[in-house]
Design a protein around this nucleic acid. Structure first.
Lengths: 184, 184
DNA sequence: ATATATAAGTGGTCAGACCAATTAGTGCGA
DNA sequence: TCGCACTAATTGGTCTGACCACTTATATAT
């Protein structure tokens, strides 16, 4: 009865996107609840959630616990465009990529509240530059930020210019963080 | 007992990433099964799946039905670096962004097998340039491709230069596709 | 009319079950 | 011994139903 899709997962994403269009939703509008979507699209709520999570990662929808699922405002991703602008306009070279990565990671470093567990996690991967930086970024727990870092870091990997920080720098970073004190 | 996280969702991602590091997994290696992960990390299998789906979208792991979940090979994302290289090195301007988008969308156009349902879906959004192109890309059902298009399209949106195609071009695209025949 | 308490709605998580695809194991025959 | 077909175990994919945490709407009391 229905068309062939690569997987029901993609089919479900397609269904939800189609419903957004048919309902003429505009950024900021609320989508039907997960339970409604499940019944309307004749799929389980678990599948609805997996599809919504994917759309969330793509920056198309956002969910608010107890509130609902909403179509994203374009403006919320303005800083992605800003970063993109930086890449696009500045005749970016290897040094610029490195500079941007250091900037992003400094942001993470200053934003993340240092806890004993996070320090332990960082120390565990202190020997590996890439894992160390990845660990730092993930501790921010901001999906959009993680996505941006992920893409920029791919540039860096492609450059094949070795580590971003030395082992001593990474150790110093941790020591500095430790000196910033613990939460209550 | 355990540290404060923004959400258990991010905490779960952190747990899995930590386990990958502690197990010294290298690209190509298989992760423990979802059931094992659930028991090891003391979370439900549904939560494990949501976390794995996120890591999948970030290009860190990939799942094979009946086979398992594997740490991604770096090389699989080589073409992301190629596209990035294009952006980074060519002093990319607005015209280049447009060119790249047209290229990506032509790839989708030639790769996707035209079916009556897909044509219907496209015709439904023919009035909206952005939705039309998004619909076309999503029909490819390739997560990595969707991600790349998504990022590049953000550049385009930031340029604010109007539509990429005219209504006539979109109609022509559909007519051309319709002429390519239907599947068996 | 305002503020407070209550109820309803919604996303987040969990448990257990079954299906579908792959993989590992077994045994038979050449 | 080797190779092939068959079976069993493993694993990701989906479904159902339940309960919790948070938000929003409603009703109630002052």
């Amino acid at each position: 009865m229905h068309e062939k899709h690569a997987s029901t997962f993609h089919e479900n994403i397609s269904k939800i996107r189609k419903l957004i269009v048919q309902s003429s939703l505009v950024p900021g509008d609320r989508l039907p609840s997960e339970r409604e979507l499940a019944e309307t699209l004749s799929i389980s709520r678990a599948s609805v959630r997996e599809a919504l999570r994917a759309l969330s990662f793509l920056g198309i929808v956002e969910t608010r616990r107890g509130g609902g699922t909403f179509l994203c405002e374009q403006d919320r991703h303005k800083y992605i465009e800003i970063l993109s602008e930086f890449i696009v306009t500045k005749q970016t070279k290897a040094t610029d990529i490195v500079e941007m990565l250091r900037l992003l990671e400094r942001m993470a470093f200053t934003e993340v509240k240092p806890t004993s567990e996070r320090l332990t996690d960082l120390e565990r991967v202190i020997a590996d530059d890439r894992l160390f930086r990845q660990q730092l970024i993930f501790q921010l727990e901001n999906e959009l930020f993680i996505r941006i870092w992920n893409e920029v870091n791919r540039f860096f990997d492609g450059l094949d210019v070795g580590d971003l920080y030395t082992l001593e720098e990474r150790k110093l970073l941790i020591e500095t963080w430790r000196g910033m004190g613990m939460p209550e």
